[in-house]
Structures are given as structure tokens and as C-alpha cells.
Design a protein around this nucleic acid. Structure first.
Length: 493
RNA sequence: GGCGGCAUAGCCAAGUGGCUAAGGCAGCGGUCUGCAAAACCGUUAUUCCCCGGUUCAAGUCCGGGUGCCGCCUCCA
């Protein structure tokens, strides 16, 4: 099976053919470091994290570049407002971004370049565009000449007439064409600036990605990604700049992730419905957030709500219960559970064969444009299959059981490594889930455990009425008890 | 005004020409249990927004309609 990728540029699923056999260069537009990251950033990060994880699992040597925009109007605005330098702002939010990403289990990209570290590359690129006649300088600003380039609009499927008819482009006397965009902006009084052939100024927004992708991945690379909102104008402009400069395609495949809506509304500052990642993670396990996102296809919109996160948590609990059970059964076997031996019975072989079929199906789903929703369907089938095994395993020799469980664990390890879930030990997961839920609901651990202890005494005395009363009382706080042979465990529903 | 997307069970969500329409959540019945929980088994869409067409065959393709949504301005 070959990897397929939906290419925004052609609006079709295409068979992925890397430039260099066995290697992939991917560039994803990162954040502008002027505020904390929100759930929308989380989605883009998780989507491309999974893309990279899967390509690596498939054996590709992936070079993943994700930039930080650390010079920009919004950063300057914020720095002025706080009376600090732009570096204070950008460094603060890059740090915050890194913390959020780590919490989400997003692997650090191979290279994370910053715009301000590549000023020479940008100036060189703009100069070459100027030499070739694609750029013109007016009063310290440098603009890209759309008309000269001629192929503008290819990615977003727009033509110049449509866009001009849209009439929402800003009026600027300096531009020859209203759609021309700034490559270099003259600095205003008091703004940070860099020296350039056009005077003191700073780069336009789009040029950094053209310069940095070229530096780290070359003139043409495999995959360029980002949120769907970046298709126009940002990626359109990147293509125009880069291809005018090199005469070569910028990227062979363009991937764009869909948006996160909040309670069916667009997320926006004016609606006040921006959800920072760190706020969400106070209430939900990061893997629940990942699962929520991965249950939809990456190009579809997802609708964030407390209910949908709670549902995702329920699904995650189901997986971890099985993982926990798997470990528990393993620990009770009389044979070494880590090595994989040959199975002896037909029944045992059937399980192992089904595991491998589910792995194949999972991979096939991922091959098909990273269909994580479908892939997750197979993950849950695997959960059921393992539960089934645990229920009907009885007369199997321990060596067979050990083998089956070791195989099952390997399959979950693969699923988990690709999707970035199941990264916790099951027992540890339930402890942290409990802590999160207690905090969220403002419940007190000692009180709950005290009641459970009292109930334990009542149970020993077979005082079922008292035991049931305590159960009911705890149920009012959504606490569900599970009676074991000699103890009671509990969790919050 | 221009460009694009989506509409599948109570909810979320895969499937995009052909066996019984994945999977999750929620619900119901059963097994298990002192009672529960978890797990397992069974069950919940004769049907995929509506109308017409193409085809031996359509949720899946084409045309029309309706309803939502995104982009066109900074935005993941």
C-alpha cells in the first residue's frame, strides 16, 4: 500500500512520492508568539504531529520544520503595551508554547527556526526578487508584484478578478496592484528594525517561511502544512515569492487542517470563546483532547465542547481499562511475559492473526490520507478483541496467554506511538484522571476515601443497607464504586 | 458579490459505485455480582437532507433545491 495525501493544490488525494526515496521534508507554519496557545493551535499541532509520527513509523526519515514568528505587528503591540522589548514577549510565548506542546504529547519538530534568526536569508531572497523584477521598492517598503508573477491564486483556486471584485483588500496608494503584498516594511518611529538595502525596516509576514523552508529543506520540498485559514493569503504568497525566486515548485503536497469551532461557533476574540490549551488541560487529560481531535478527519471542522471532551474521556477510559487489565493478567502468569514464543493452540493463533489483521487495517486507514477516525475504529476493535480474550481465555496454557498478551501489547504500542496516546502506564493514568476530576469538581479525596472505608466495614459486617446508602451518597458526586474481593476501587464518571 | 466545504442513528463520526452502512458516547435487555461497577453477549439507521437523472447496481456519480459553515482582513 502506498501513502495517499489530499493535496490542497489539486484538491485530490494523490499517491505520496517523496523527492528523495525514504526521506520526507515537511514544513508547517507555526505560531506568532504574542499570546498563549489555544485549542486551535493544539489541533494543528496534533494533526501534524500524527502525520510525522506515522510517516516515521512507516520508515521515512522525516525532517520536520515548524517555525516561530517572533517579529510581527501583534508582538510589537503587546510589547509596547507592557513596556517591554519584543524579545521579552516572543520568548515568553515560545516558552509557553513549548510547555503546552509537551503537555499535549506533541513531539518537538526537528528544527524550530525563528524569523529574527534568518534576517539575512530574507533580505537575500527579497533582493533576488527585486533583481528579477518581481519586487519593487516604494519609500522604504518593498512589495511583491502579483501581475509580474502571473500565476497568482493557484493554490486557493481564485483568480485576480474575483479577488479584486471582493473589494475587501486594503487601499494602499503605494501598491501597483491592490493585491501586491509587503515583503519588507519600513519601520515606524520607535519600532524595532533591521538594516537592509531599502533602509531600516522589518520583514513582511510571508517571507520568513519562504526563506526558512528554503534554508532547511531546499527550494522544493515534500509537504507544506498549516491551518486552512493560511491557504489564502499566506500560502498563496509564499508560493508566489518562492517560485518567482527559484522557478521551481515550493512544495509538492499541501496539507491543511480544519478549524476548531467552539460550541458550534467560530472561535474568536470578539465572542470571547478562545480556549487556551492550559485551561483545557486543567480539566481533561491531554490524551482525551488528542482522542477528541483524532476522532474526526483532520480536514473536517471539529466542534469543541465540554460534552465532546467528556465523551472522548469515556472512550479513553475504555482503552486504558483494557490496558490495565492486560497488564494485570500478564502479571499473574507463571511464565516470562516479555518474550514472544510460538503459540501452540489454534485458538491462540486465531487471536494473534486477528491482531495482525487489525494492525493492517489501522495502517491502511492511516495510509489513506491519515484517516485517524477510521484508524481509531480499529483501535477500539482491538480493545474489544483483547477484552474478549480476557473473558474466554480460561483453559489456555500460560505460555499461550503470555504470547497473546505480549502481541496485543505490541499492537497497542504501535497504535499509541502513531496517535500519541496510551503513553501512560494504565495505573498511572487512572491516578491522574482521578486527580483531574477531583480538582475539576472541587471534591475532597480524604472525605471520599473515608466514606469508602466506612462502607468497607459495613460490607464486612454484611450491612448491605448501610453499604448501599454510602454508594448512593457517593453517586451524587458521580463517584462509581467497584467492589473487589477484599477492597473497593472507585472512579469519577 | 466571489471561492470552497458540509448534511449518515438520541449525540459524535468513518465510509465516496457492488458482500449484513465502521467505531465511540448515551440508552435498553441479558450474563456476572449481596447490590452495583467494569467486562462480555444481544439490541438501537430497510437507510444515509429533499427532488430528479446516469447505471445491472448510488449514502457514494450528475443536475436542481433546502439548510448549515468556512475563506476572501490578522488568524492554527
Amino acid at each position: 500500500m502506498s501513502q495517499k495525501i489530499f493535496n490542497t493544490a489539486t484538491r485530490k488525494k494523490e499517491i505520496f512520492q517523496p523527492i528523495k526515496e525514504g526521506a520526507v521534508g515537511i514544513y508547517v507554519c507555526g505560531i506568532t508568539a504574542y499570546d498563549v496557545c489555544h485549542v486551535g493551535h493544539a489541533r494543528a499541532a496534533v494533526v501534524f504531529d500524527v502525520v510525522v509520527r506515522y510517516l516515521r513509523a512507516r520508515g521515512y526519515a522525516v525532517t520536520y520544520v515548524k517555525n516561530f514568528t517572533d517579529i510581527d505587528d501583534k508582538i510589537i503591540y503587546r510589547a509596547n503595551k507592557e513596556g517591554v522589548g519584543i524579545k521579552d514577549i516572543s520568548e515568553r510565548y515560545i516558552k509557553s508554547h513549548d510547555e503546552d506542546m509537551a503537555a499535549l504529547g506533541v513531539q518537538t519538530p526537528t528544527i524550530t527556526p525563528k524569523a529574527t534568526g534568518h534576517m539575512d536569508d530574507m533580505i537575500a531572497l527579497i533582493s533576488s526578487l527585486e533583481e528579477k523584477g518581481y519586487a519593487y521598492c516604494v519609500d522604504g517598503d518593498v512589495y511583491f508584484a502579483i501581475n509580474k508573477y502571473g500565476q497568482y491564486g493557484g493554490l486557493s483556486g481564485r483568480n485576480l478578478e474575483d479577488m479584486i471584485a471582493g473589494a475587501r483588500v486594503d487601499v494602499n496608494d503605494k501598491k501597483r496592484n491592490p493585491l501586491d503584498f509587503a515583503l519588507w516594511k519600513k519601520s515606524k518611529e520607535g519600532e524595532p528594525f533591521w538594516e537592509s538595502p531599502w533602509g531600516n525596516g522589518r520583514p513582511g509576514w510571508h517571507i520568513e517561511c519562504s526563506a526558512m523552508s528554503r534554508r532547511y529543506l531546499g527550494e522544493t520540498f515534500d509537504i507544506h502544512g498549516g491551518g486552512e485559514d493560511l491557504i489564502f493569503p499566506h500560502h498563496e504568497n509564499e508560493i508566489a515569492q518562492s517560485q518567482a525566486a527559484t522557478g521551481k515548485p515550493l512544495a509538492n503536497y499541501w496539507m491543511h487542517n480544519g478549524f476548531v469551532k467552539i460550541n458550534s461557533e467560530k472561535m474568536s476574540k470578539s465572542l470571547g470563546n478562545i480556549f487556551p490549551i492550559r485551561e483545557i488541560l486543567k480539566k481533561y487529560h491531554p490524551e482525551a483532547l488528542r482522542l477528541f481531535m483524532l476522532q474526526s478527519h483532520y480536514r473536517s471542522p471539529v466542534d469543541y465542547s465540554e460534552e465532546s471532551l467528556t465523551e472522548a474521556r469515556s472512550g479513553l477510559l475504555r482503552c486504558y481499562r483494557t490496558l490495565q487489565l492486560l497488564k494485570e493478567v500478564q502479571s499473574k502468569l507463571s511464565v516470562d511475559t516479555t518474550t514472544v514464543a510460538k503459540t501452540s493452540s489454534e485458538q491462540a493463533e486465531t487471536y494473534v492473526r486477528q491482531f495482525s489483521q487489525l494492525t493492517d487495517k489501522f495502517n491502511a486507514a492511516m495510509d489513506d490520507d491519515f484517516n485517524t477516525a477510521q484508524a481509531l475504529g480499529h483501535v477500539f476493535e482491538m480493545v474489544r478483541l483483547v477484552n474478549n480474550f480476557i473473558v474466554d481465555k480460561k483453559n489456555m496454557p500460560d505460555s499461550d496467554k503470555a504470547n497473546i498478551l505480549a502481541q496485543a501489547r505490541k499492537v497497542f504500542d504501535h497504535f499509541g506511538a502513531v496517535l500519541g496516546v496510551f503513553q501512560n502506564d494504565a495505573d498511572q493514568f487512572f491516578i491522574s484522571d482521578k486527580e483531574t476530576e477531583l480538582r475539576k469538581r472541587g471534591l475532597n479525596l480524604e472525605e471520599i476515601e473515608g466514606l469508602i472505608h466506612q462502607r468497607q466495614i459495613a460490607r464486612q459486617q454484611k450491612d448491605w443497607a448501610r453499604a448501599d446508602d454510602i454508594r448512593k451518597e457517593l453517586a451524587r458526586f458521580n463517584i462509581v464504586l467497584k467492589d473487589l474481593a477484599d477492597s473497593t476501587s472507585w472512579m469519577i464518571e
